[in-house]
Design a protein around this nucleic acid. Structure first.
Lengths: 128, 128
DNA sequence: CTTGACCCTCCAGTGACTGGAAGTCCTATC
DNA sequence: GATAGGACTTCCAGTCACTGGAGGGTCAAG
């Protein structure tokens, strides 16, 4: 299977797939003409990667998850640890953004938003 | 005032301050020895920038906000528009992350997290 | 006169791609 | 057989907002 088909099947841009090969996440075979020749397992891995990335796992997380996925002797605790740590990061990021949202909402509400120059947003950015 | 003092006062790393000069956000004077010589207005601007960046405004937003801040004839509506647009982006990012959190929480709860290989997290990343 | 803290510039790297140039290969049509 | 187009290849550069480090100049204290 060529990269274009795989791209459609896995839902990843061809560029991204080449990049994943570059950094060693996949190692597709090559045809005599130099074209990458993907097998089902490659497509499977790429789909897996796409899902994991959608959930915000870093590439290094993905590398670890793929290794565990490949390893039949894995302990599910190892997978869970990665997911749990990632979850904690997501939660802290949400909290940060919620703080920011709070402040911004406040500022936007306070500002008249007309053609006069007086603006509490700018004032608060000075004083905050 | 030298960059070290400004760094403390504005709460920004010296590296960042040099970078902000590089990209034209500030233009501090120079002493005869080549050292940057910051005036109060520079420090004021840098503090403003620090605040805006903390709230997640992009550098280009900051550039616009600084210009409005400098411009006594500004309309507060222009400032508000920038803040409002940014707020919308923050809110959409929060929503995305909350979706991810939802899924991840689910997965983590389902996984036994013991020394057996069976792992619903990996399964779901295949199927999802 | 030396030590150590501070300052300077310039280059490279981060993460995870993405865009584009320049060239090869395959397939279909005339 | 020529040609047009699309798909594929590699390689280089750019994104965003810094950050780290090398290699060197400057300054104040002892």
């Amino acid at each position: 299977m060529n990269i274009g088909d795989v791209s459609k099947r896995a839902g990843l841009p061809a560029k991204t797939i080449r990049y994943y090969e570059d950094i060693g996440l996949i190692t597709p075979a090559r045809d005599t003409n130099g074209y990458r020749s993907f097998c089902d397992s490659d497509v499977h891995k790429l789909t897996f990667l796409g899902r994991a990335r959608t959930l915000g796992f870093t590439i290094e997380n993905c590398r670890d998850l793929l290794a565990l996925w490949d390893n039949q002797d894995r302990a599910s605790a190892d997978v869970r640890a990665i997911a749990q740590q990632h979850l904690a990061q997501i939660e802290s990021k949400i909290a940060d953004l919620q703080d920011i949202r709070h402040t911004l909402t406040h500022l936007v509400h306070e500002c008249a938003g007309d053609d006069r120059p007086d603006c509490p947003i700018l004032q608060r950015l000075e004083e905050l």
